[in-house]
Simulated assay, not measured.
Amino acid sequence: MKHDKLVFIRIICLVGIIGEVLFPNSTVGILFGLILAITSVIFLLMLKNEMALEKSDCENNYSISIMCISVVVLLLIIVGYMILKDFQIITLSDTQEYFFSEILVFSFMALFGSCANALPFNKYVGLRLPWTLVDYQTWRYAHKLLHELSFPAILFSIVILKMFPNKSKTLMIWSVLLYLGVPSFFSYLYYKKKHQ
């Protein structure tokens, strides 16, 4: 039964992607995608007690709730802004828009980082890589790294963005890639060393 519910989440996500293709750059497509995304997150919240792959993690699932709820809030903020912008209720300059996106990205990095160390070993929420999904110790190592690097990565990104304000978009992309890439790379090395 649990497996059937999780397959249903994947189907919802697939339908959401198809909806985005059928209604590109339209308010209808955005709302359709938002409703399906929130529905799939609600299903994840309902199944959070069944998602942990390690018995010792079964009771430590508050971090999944925090992550799921923060994703819903983030989606609501982004979609709300896009709709208000489409109807010209809110108009931000490029600089203000970049600043707004930086606040959202850094907020999510801070939330993800603060929850990462406590995330239970699962296949749906967290740093889901082939080597973290097959080994409990590697999962713990990757998420501990992610937790420890979050705030230094945010501070470093803020400093770099202040030094190069004209390169905001590129620097934000690289900040997120490095933030996720460093724990991914080192956890891969950890996994390889452990399984030699």
Results as ranks from 00 to 15, higher is better:
N25P: 02
S26V: 11
N25H: 11
K48M: 11
L44V: 15
I42V: 12
N49G: 12
L45S: 05
L34D: 03
F23N: 07
M46L: 13
F43W: 06
F23A: 02
L22W: 06
G33P: 05
F43R: 04
V28Y: 10
N49H: 14
G29R: 07
K48L: 06
V41D: 05
L31I: 13
F32A: 04
V28D: 03
S40W: 08
P24Q: 13
T27L: 11
F43Q: 06
N49F: 09
L44T: 15
I42E: 03
L31G: 09
I30E: 10
F32T: 01
I35G: 03
L31F: 10
S40D: 00
I42W: 05
E50H: 08
M46I: 07
V21E: 02
V41Y: 13
L22R: 00
N25E: 13
V21Q: 04
I42M: 09
L31D: 07
T39I: 12
E50Y: 02
F23G: 00
K48V: 10
P24A: 12
I38D: 04
A37L: 14
L47W: 04
I35H: 01
L45P: 02
N25R: 10
A37K: 12
S26K: 06
L34G: 08
L47K: 04
S26P: 09
T39Q: 14
S40N: 02
V28W: 11
L47G: 01
V28K: 05
A37M: 15
L47E: 15
M46F: 10
F43T: 00
T27S: 12
G33Y: 09
L22E: 04
L47Q: 15
L45T: 02
L47I: 04
L31K: 10
L22T: 02
V41H: 09
L22Y: 08
V28S: 03
V21D: 00
S26H: 06
L47C: 10
G29P: 03
G33F: 11
E50V: 03
F43E: 04
L36G: 08
T27I: 15
G33L: 09
I30F: 07
I35S: 13
P24M: 14
A37H: 14
S26R: 06
N25Q: 08
F43A: 01
F23L: 09
I42N: 02
P24V: 14
I38V: 15
T27F: 05
V21F: 11
I42Q: 01
T39H: 06
V21H: 03
K48S: 04
F23D: 02
I38A: 12
G33H: 11
M46R: 08
I42G: 01
S40V: 00
L47P: 03
I42C: 06
L47M: 15
S26I: 11
M46T: 00
S40H: 03
N49W: 00
L45Q: 05
L45F: 12
L34F: 12
L44C: 14
F43C: 08
M46W: 07
P24T: 14
V21A: 13
M46C: 01
S26N: 07
I30G: 03
F23I: 05
L34Q: 06
N25M: 01
S40T: 00
A37F: 15
I30D: 05
F32H: 05
N49R: 08
P24S: 13
G33N: 14
F43Y: 11
L22M: 13
L34N: 06
F43N: 04
F23P: 03
I38H: 05
L36N: 07
V41Q: 14
L31A: 09
L34A: 14
S26A: 08
S26M: 09
T27N: 12
I42K: 01
L22I: 12
